[in-house]
Amino acid sequence: MSVERAGLLDGAIAPVSNIRLFGHAAAEAFLARSYRSGKGHHAILIEGPEGIGKATLAFRFANHVLRYPEPETAPETIADPDPDHPVSRQLASGASHNLLHLSRPVDEKTGRVRTAITVDEVRKAGHFFSQTSGTGNWRIVIIDPADDLNRNAANAILKILEEPPKRAMFLVLSHAPGKLLPTIRSRCLPLRLHELAPEAMDQALGQLGLSIPADKREAVLALAKGSVARALKLVNYGGAEILEAFEQMLAASGPTQRKMMYKIADALSGKDSEVAFGFFVEHLGDHLSETARRLAMTGDLGGAEHFARLSSVINQQLGVAAAYNLDRKQTILDVLAAVTR
Rank of each mutant, 00 (worst) to 15 (best):
L205Q: 02
E195C: 13
P182E: 08
H194G: 13
A224G: 05
A224N: 12
G226T: 04
G209H: 09
L181F: 08
L223V: 10
L223N: 12
R230I: 02
P177S: 05
A214C: 00
L181E: 12
K225F: 06
P190T: 14
Q203F: 04
I184D: 07
L189T: 14
E195G: 13
A197F: 04
S227Y: 03
L208T: 07
R217M: 00
L181Q: 03
I184K: 11
E195W: 02
R187A: 08
T183V: 06
M201I: 10
A222L: 10
P182R: 12
R217Q: 02
G206E: 13
R230L: 01
P213M: 06
K225E: 15
L196F: 06
H194W: 14
R192Y: 10
A204F: 04
I212G: 05
D215E: 14
C188W: 05
S186D: 13
D215P: 01
L196H: 03
C188D: 01
I212C: 10
A219G: 06
G226S: 09
L223G: 04
A222R: 15
P177D: 00
L205P: 09
L210W: 01
A231D: 02
L180E: 10
A224E: 11
L193K: 07
K179Y: 00
G226I: 05
R230V: 02
L189R: 15
M201H: 11
R185H: 11
K225P: 06
G206C: 04
K225C: 11
T183P: 08
R230S: 13
L196Q: 08
P177G: 03
K233N: 13
P177C: 04
A229C: 01
V220C: 04
A229R: 10
V228M: 07
V228R: 00
K216P: 03
T183D: 08
L234D: 09
L208V: 01
K216S: 15
L193H: 04
G209W: 00
A219S: 12
L180N: 00
P198I: 09
A214G: 07
G178D: 14
A229V: 08
G209A: 00
S227D: 05
G206F: 02
A200D: 15
A197D: 14
R185L: 03
L221N: 08
S211E: 14
L205F: 07
E195Q: 14
L191E: 07
C188N: 07
